[in-house]
Amino acid sequence: MSDASFLSLDKLSLAYGKTIAVKELDLDIRKGELLALLGPSGCGKTTTMRAIAGLMTPVSGRITLDGADITRVPANRRNIGLVFQSYALFPHLTVFENVAFGLKLQGIGGDELTRRVDAGLKSVGLTAFSGRKTPDLSGGQQQRVALARSMVMQPKVLMLDEPLSNLDARLRLEMRTELQRMQKETGVTMIFVTHDQVEALALADRIVVMRDGAIEQIGTPEEIYNNPVSSFVADFVGFENLFAIRNGKLVAAGGIELDPAGPLPDAAGLAWRPRAIALGAGPFTGTVRGVSFAGGTREYLLESGFGTVKAEADVSVPGYPLNAEVAFDMPISAAAPLHRFG
């Protein structure tokens, strides 16, 4: 085993009854990294997480953790932590008892129990809430209890299901920093599942984009953000103008072909973010069908001969009114080349 494959999924296939959820997934997770499983609902990310935790038995394939095959190891002996989206706290127990739950099962008691639970509560800033029943806590506090409950077990891997989705914007930022801090301090391998690209980009060391039970792309946030390999990933991370390349021509979503403004790279398609569309001059023209003010920029919906184009321009540049005819360019150099389309 190397640190590069601390946790390995080897041709892992998962199914609910006869419905295949994940097919022959290969994935190596490094020790101490913060990995995001990103994808829309139904892509298999949660199923993969549950299989790693042992809450579901694979149809085929292997899972190895720290050099040991854990495919058939029951969930209660894997030492993998999971913070549920609902937090899944035990409502009949106090905050202290919730955090002590797993330690007690290991036979830890007395001073050591108190010491470790207190340390866990301290690390999430909930020392003062030790005696409270969990239903009395706010959502953010409940999540911290769930986090402490998993972390006091010193798990080999900590997984989090949509960790930020139930929090409001302010708490979200706070929790994001806290998770990163905790991960750096303890060095725990962390995997979190999310459908929110912003969350994944902000938090993860590495992102695995999943689609239909398979991996679409693996990369750092920068790689995913700047160099999506496919139209699916590009669409997911905000490239709103997607064109396939066929016979030396660009093909818009509606199937209309257009001549490119320059030589095309060797790729299956091209993608532009709204920001990459240059307004004011260029070979194409469009009619402004929508303008919306977005703080530092204005966003435009342009109706062109080949379909709708989304563009964005600084507010410092004079804006265009509705129904204005605007010339624009889609510079090849500003586009992300896609290796797979559709």
């Binding site: 809450l55 209660n76 894997r78 549920f84 899944a88 035990f90 739950f101 797993g102 769930a146």
Partner: peptide
Amino acid sequence: RSDMEEAAVLLGSSRLGAFFRV
């Protein structure tokens, strides 16, 4: 919520134990 039992199992409880404890 049924994820409470799963949480108990992941913290080291057997499934039967999770039923009685949680």
